[in-house]
Nucleic acid binder design. Sequence first.
DNA 1: GTGAAAGCGCTAACAA
DNA 2: TTGTTAGCGCTTTCAC
Lengths: 365, 365
Amino acid sequence: MSESTPRRRDVTVADVAREARVSKAQAARALGGYGAVSDDVRERVMAAAEHLNYRPNELARTMNTGKSNTLGVVVGDIENPHFGLAMRGISDVAKAAGFDVILINTSEDVAAEVDAVRVLLDKRVDGLIVAPASRGDSEHLGRVLEAGRPLVLFDRKVDGLNVDVFAPDMTDVARESTEQLIAVGHRRIAFISTVDAEGPYREGMPLASSQVAERLLGMHLAFRHAGLCLNRDLIRLGAGDSESIAAITEEVLADGATAIVASDGLIALSVIETIQRLGLSIPDDVSFLMYDDFAWTKLTSPPLSVIAQPVYDIGAAAARAVILRIRGQVPRTSPEELKAVLVERGSIGAATAGDRQAMGASSAR
Amino acid sequence: MSESTPRRRDVTVADVAREARVSKAQAARALGGYGAVSDDVRERVMAAAEHLNYRPNELARTMNTGKSNTLGVVVGDIENPHFGLAMRGISDVAKAAGFDVILINTSEDVAAEVDAVRVLLDKRVDGLIVAPASRGDSEHLGRVLEAGRPLVLFDRKVDGLNVDVFAPDMTDVARESTEQLIAVGHRRIAFISTVDAEGPYREGMPLASSQVAERLLGMHLAFRHAGLCLNRDLIRLGAGDSESIAAITEEVLADGATAIVASDGLIALSVIETIQRLGLSIPDDVSFLMYDDFAWTKLTSPPLSVIAQPVYDIGAAAARAVILRIRGQVPRTSPEELKAVLVERGSIGAATAGDRQAMGASSAR
DNA sequence: GTGAAAGCGCTAACAA
DNA sequence: TTGTTAGCGCTTTCAC
């Protein structure tokens, strides 16, 4: 079919119009499916378009209409299957509604996120779905709203921004799971997260991630409800590479932690490696709980207890909402469906008060 | 409810020019940094731009220049950390070279891939990096070339397309690892892959994934070199969901397989679950080897032996190449750096000839 | 229904 | 150096 149009300048409406012997305007109307066009003209135009292998220039189209039929997504870490799954939720909904989706990864870097939002806005996406890297930085997101483009957030909240957020509230599930740990005797529960913070942990300190803030709040509530006191030395933020995580793990164990909660999959990997390396056993010597339900958590011995979020649904809901907004409707936000749950699998056991408390000789500060 | 934002018309070069009391052309030159502009004019223009909060319309710019300063990436499964990591390689290189990156996920669906390529082309990306879903379908990729846009492939090859491909040759490493399995006594080695094929496996049959074809070729070579015959009943393609993978695993075990090779992480998960469920132990009862080196493979007991690819480097190399092509240079393809290696960790043991051999098998000398 | 012509916001010839 | 004038490919008045 393609022999007569080798490397020529792209075929334009004008070319099609000429071939169909109609005006440029009529050809454009037929091609774009928007004005009033007689059947006869439409047929001739379509035939000509087919014959010339015409492809509309979406850029020109977008320039005129301001609409690109495209959703922009910004996430911090596409390597994390968590976001991969959310992305599929978004894509599926978008595709069904006739939207394309383009994604930019920011490596959890705020500057990169600012850039990403700018790029997407520049490309005139019709709406933006963002998993914000920091709850504090909202200026660039505010600009999206100013530009009149719909924006929804997922996975995390941002302060002072009046937009829909699709993320389960983690307070309840954090509280429940902490209560369960307390119920089987744990009093010294460590929490390890990559989220950065200024200085050591204090209750209520500002945290970049709203999810982490909620998780900690839940822990506090559980302890308080049990009339106990959460030991803040065991809350360790700013964990970085696997070495620092390993070091932190050793420290909290030496510090008498009988249970460790890992804030994400990466943390979990290093924590478990360290526990194994120290010759300790889960859950006999130490109990373990992690956020996010990855497939591999079923493979270890014992299989790992996790806190699972409906990630696919979160993505799908976010996409549905932004599409509604694009269409000028207001989504009835029903985030009550998006609930995180504790999945008990076998890494939580009774606290072994005696043993390690004593042997924790190694590196207590 | 977001107070509907003022539909304020974007500020344009014309606005800036007026404010700076220069011609539109001069303002554009100063803003775009391209013509000859006096310091005085430049300053006034910049000040005006700042004052009016001018933001260039990249779409209009792209329409004129044909350049968007953007790389398009198409992958089949962003949920797979394999691609996530490659994506980071691409992003890092692109960012360093001043390119934006936008990604479209296809869920390994050829139709979606065709769409994705069209969308990206429509958005006038300067170059395309694709991990093709099928080695057979190349028409849409051919169109990229026809459109005069640089294209490079990674992870997999495509037939009849003259472009750079960044993927390690898997033949050697497949052969080596098979030889190792043979060396410790394995004769009945199963290979399980999601890749679809028509009917049961025959040597040399057309396969959608060039990687899988190479892996099988390597296995064949190893067997042949050892004077043995690979049992094609144990090569199982078209594995789908976890149930079908579990069923296949049971079948090959019943058929006397003493070692199982999983073609990707998803397969691996189900295979190991099944092995555990059957009460068999790795590597005592059955040896295990998988493609791709995920972090969790170190966590199981025993840790898993894997075939690792330099995924980040592959992505980075692909990005470098496409950027060179965009600049009109010809990348010196040196894919020799991109080598996959066998990482022995503990899931490969001597074949236990006795037990299960009894129930299955015949054939082969 | 149809067509001429005026944009969208920018870059690029071409003079001056 | 500057300004004028065309475009890029499409949509959109506004007459006929």
